[in-house]
Design a protein around this nucleic acid. Sequence first.
DNA 1: TATAGTTAGTTTAGGGGGTAAACTATAAAA
DNA 2: TTTTATAGTTTACCCCCTAAACTAACTATA
Lengths: 150, 150
Amino acid sequence: MGNKLREAVELFEEVMIYGTERVLKSVDDPIWREYSPEQIQVMKIIGKHGPISSGNLAIMQGVHKSAISNRLKKLQEKELVQAAKSGVDQRTKLIELTKKGETVVHQSNEVLYGYIEHLLEEHVEEGEVEQFVKTFRKLKEILKLGEEDK
Amino acid sequence: MGNKLREAVELFEEVMIYGTERVLKSVDDPIWREYSPEQIQVMKIIGKHGPISSGNLAIMQGVHKSAISNRLKKLQEKELVQAAKSGVDQRTKLIELTKKGETVVHQSNEVLYGYIEHLLEEHVEEGEVEQFVKTFRKLKEILKLGEEDK
DNA sequence: TATAGTTAGTTTAGGGGGTAAACTATAAAA
DNA sequence: TTTTATAGTTTACCCCCTAAACTAACTATA
């Protein structure tokens, strides 16, 4: 067991940590230049979730609330997000995407998906896809992804 | 093919991009607090490669030379790296780890490996390890990792 | 050899990212 | 009401990154 596990750990580090960086840097598109990954990510979250508070965004992105505050300020200046009419609590303001924001999210998805799809399609055989999906599902489970929402 | 590939792409994004972030944030160790991931990474490269020029480091880390210049300056102040006696070309200065630097790299490896090992050991069955290794090897190949050295 | 061009690294300016702590405003509890 | 808690914003300070200007050293060429 030990040796195989050791190899798995090393591969995990190489691929997940350094490999991911490389993938992100290889995606070369104007939209990637204009908005930071964090900005895109927060917009994606808002898009999926619908109007959401600043505090929730901080939790979901795993950063300090002041970081989100700053991020949203920049996005508002660029007119990508806006405050929806607040709910019961006057302190919280719900954030939502503007039309422009939706467009940017959509474009960004196209670019990233296109890139990854191209990558996989070119290098992974028909029969291997199943294997990939299986391993990644497991990984997703291990990393407890998808539990971020509340 | 289409659907499976689509799922693979989505999983790839979720796991690789957002999952990796999460893993890195979960590693909670003083050494992670004291030195940035970029600083640790560059020290690892120097450790593996041996005395190396600033320019080569920039290429290997995939950043601008000025970023490396700055990084090395900070590491020198912390006495983690030092300039070895330069080679033929008086403009290039070869960088190497100090004893302290070696220690930090070693500690950092222990922490990260320990964390990942724990993660895999706890969630992955004996028989699944083989599967993991296989998929990751393929991924490493796809991402063309390990070709960075010249 | 003297001049011109190239290359390795450093500096500086400016824009991201992040945290902690202080501060404002609103809500909830005593 | 008075006090305590909570949502967000600001401010101060740090790291990361790039581009462009600049120094020093090496190379080529007239």
